[in-house]
């Protein structure tokens, strides 16, 4: 369809991908017990996804709020931060997103091509424990959005759910001293450019 809102299409595709990616990161990095995860098929490959309703709801709510930012190309990075029991970051999975300013006409085949590219990201995440060191026990996570403009300008966009408020993150809780950079995957398509890398704290 000519009048298809490409921003929406990209946001739908990316948020669906990010949901799978967040679940998989939490599984692979053992943030939660493996017993809450179940094998499901996404992008034509098996992935581990949580079946815990509270956790699933949290991830869904987070991504629902991020979606308008992605739609307007206001989200520069979506970061899954794994923090230790003192809330200091040990790993940051950084999804750096870039959308072309003028999106060309989409088609099913184009989206199918993007899904193939996204599958490669999922495969990389599923084996990333091989290139990362073990995290300390008692880790938790949070999802951060780095906006292109000052966060306060985007607060209204992200605040789509009344009972799921957002705040400006403190630099201290996102900053990691001299992290080790582990590039995982990058892709370029007509509708999305994205790269994923991990920043890993030297001493965990």
């Amino acid at each position: 369809r000519q009048d298809l809102n490409f921003g929406q299409v990209v946001a739908d595709v990316l948020c669906e991908f990010l949901e799978v990616a967040v679940h998989l990161i939490l599984y692979v990095r053992e943030v939660y017990p493996s017993g809450i995860f179940q094998k499901r098929k996404k992008y034509n490959i098996p992935v581990q996804m949580s079946c815990h309703p509270d956790l699933n709801q949290y991830i869904q709510d987070t991504l629902l709020c991020i979606k308008p930012l992605i739609e307007k190309n206001d989200a520069e990075k979506v970061v899954v931060v794994i923090v230790d029991k003192d809330h200091r970051p040990v790993e940051r999975f950084v999804f750096e997103i870039c959308q072309p300013p003028l999106l060309s006409i989409s088609s099913d085949s184009l989206l199918s091509h993007v899904e193939q590219l996204l599958r490669a990201f999922i495969l990389k995440i599923s084996v990333c424990d091989a290139v990362l060191t073990t995290n300390p026990p008692g880790c938790s996570f949070s999802v951060l959005v780095h906006t292109r403009d000052a966060a306060t300008r985007n607060m209204e966009k992200v605040q789509v759910m009344k009972d799921f408020p957002w705040i400006v993150a403190d630099e201290q809780e996102v900053h990691m001293k001299e992290p080790r950079l582990v590039p995982l995957k990058s892709m370029t398509s007509d509708i999305i450019k994205m790269q994923l890398y991990v920043e890993e704290r030297a001493q965990k």
């Binding site: 939660y32 815990h52 520069e76």
Partner: peptide, 27 residues
């Protein structure tokens, strides 16, 4: 604005590992 002024996060934390463990038998 500094780096921190560009970063947003949910106010609420996700369920903790302990909370998840305490509800495991219900799953």
């Amino acid at each position: 604005a500094g780096g921190g002024a560009h970063i947003l996060k949910p106010l609420m934390s996700p369920p903790s590992r302990e909370e998840i463990l305490s509800t495991l038998p219900e799953l």
